[in-house]
């Protein structure tokens, strides 16, 4: 905002934003740790992709959005769902396959959804949802709205045709879409450089005349600032942006995959853990005098309680009714 703000209150709102971001990152971390536990106990089935290590991306970018903007994700979307405001209870219940889940137990980990939060879904096929983001942006423009759509996908998604079709379309039609590539370096167990001719994803923006920025995905504030610039471009005339956010996942691709050993070394994972985005954010807040260690610990205790409550809620929630099996295939 360009309005004159007293330095003290500006600092205060900055501090509040940073504190909120740290809390959200902690919430994702603790949520995912509990999800891993529940998976090991057999309470979560199927495929479950954790966001541990990548928290700064969802938190940094989503804080740059308004509540009436739209978000669409790939299958590693627990973090985005939580930051967007879907209650941890509803997300955990969805992982548990319960009727109280945000997709009523019909979606699961990869298909979280809440239209009320303008969270237009996680999607379980790599890159296929990117054209839908163009459609969301198209509808905004069709109605002369000033909202935008933020679309997340991994670096491996840039090898699918839908990515290229959608970027071209968004650029030709000047759609208010931000394409946020979370480059965590591995498509499941395959290093990106082994399967991509161009390994700087951001270079793909040239082909489609998009604005582009390469961002340090371990720094939530860097992500926040880059996304804020992309948001400005989208709102002022709908110029789409491709963000390449370099991040790293500390866990395996999904709960059924090894952490390291096959496609990456233990040493590499350990080295990346030294760049933990949450530790970095906590250090910053302590350095800025926004929080002391006790304050950080208090936030952590708060989110741990929230996650514990979510697990209890999910545990105690009912399974979907058998009748739900046949509903919502078609409108009638």
């Amino acid at each position: 905002m360009a309005t004159a703000t007293a330095p003290a209150s500006k600092d205060q709102s900055q501090a509040e934003l940073h504190r909120r971001m740290l809390r959200q990152m902690l919430l994702i971390r603790r949520f995912e740790e509990k999800a891993a536990e529940a998976y090991a106990l057999g309470k979560i089935g199927g495929f479950c992709h954790l966001y541990i290590g990548q928290e700064a991306v969802a938190v940094g970018s989503l804080n740059a959005l308004r509540d009436d903007d739209y978000v669409i994700c790939s299958y590693r979307e627990h973090g985005q769902a939580l930051v967007r405001g879907i209650p941890a209870t509803a997300v955990m219940a969805e992982l548990f396959g319960k009727a109280t889940g945000c997709s009523r137990g019909k979606g699961g980990s990869m298909h979280l959804f809440d239209a009320g939060k303008r969270f237009m879904g996680g999607h379980g096929i790599v890159g296929g949802h990117i054209p839908l983001a163009a459609g969301l942006g198209f509808a905004i423009k069709y109605r002369d709205g000033d909202q935008l759509c933020l679309c997340y996908f991994g670096e491996a998604a840039v090898n699918i045709g839908a990515f290229h079709e959608a970027l071209n379309m968004a650029s030709v039609w000047k759609l208010p879409v931000i394409f946020c590539c979370e480059n965590n370096r591995y498509g499941m167990g395959t290093a990106f450089e082994r399967v991509a001719a161009v390994t700087d994803v951001v270079e793909h923006a040239c082909s489609y005349d998009l604005a582009a920025e390469l961002v340090n995905g371990m720094d939530a504030l860097a992500v926040y600032e880059a996304t804020t610039r992309a948001v400005d471009r989208a709102r002022k005339g709908g110029h789409p942006t491709l963000l390449e956010v370099r991040t790293y996942r500390f866990m395996g691709h999904s709960m059924s995959d090894p952490l390291h050993g096959v496609y990456r070394t233990k040493e590499e994972v350990e080295e990346q853990r030294q760049r933990d985005p949450i530790t970095q954010m906590a250090h910053k807040l302590i350095g800025d005098g926004v929080l002391d260690q006790a304050g950080v610990d208090a936030l952590d205790a708060e989110v741990r309680a929230e996650v514990e409550a979510a697990v209890q809620f999910a545990d105690q929630s009912p399974d979907p009714e058998p009748g739900a099996l046949l509903t919502d295939v078609l409108a009638e």
Partner: peptide, 26 residues
């Protein structure tokens, strides 16, 4: 032009974008 739209030759994106717009009530 806002309602009769020439697209690139991109069938996946044509249907995908149509779906996204339909999710928004169009």
């Amino acid at each position: 032009e806002s309602r009769v739209i020439d697209t690139p030759i991109s069938e996946a994106a044509i249907v995908g974008a149509a779906a996204g717009a339909a999710h928004m009530g169009l």
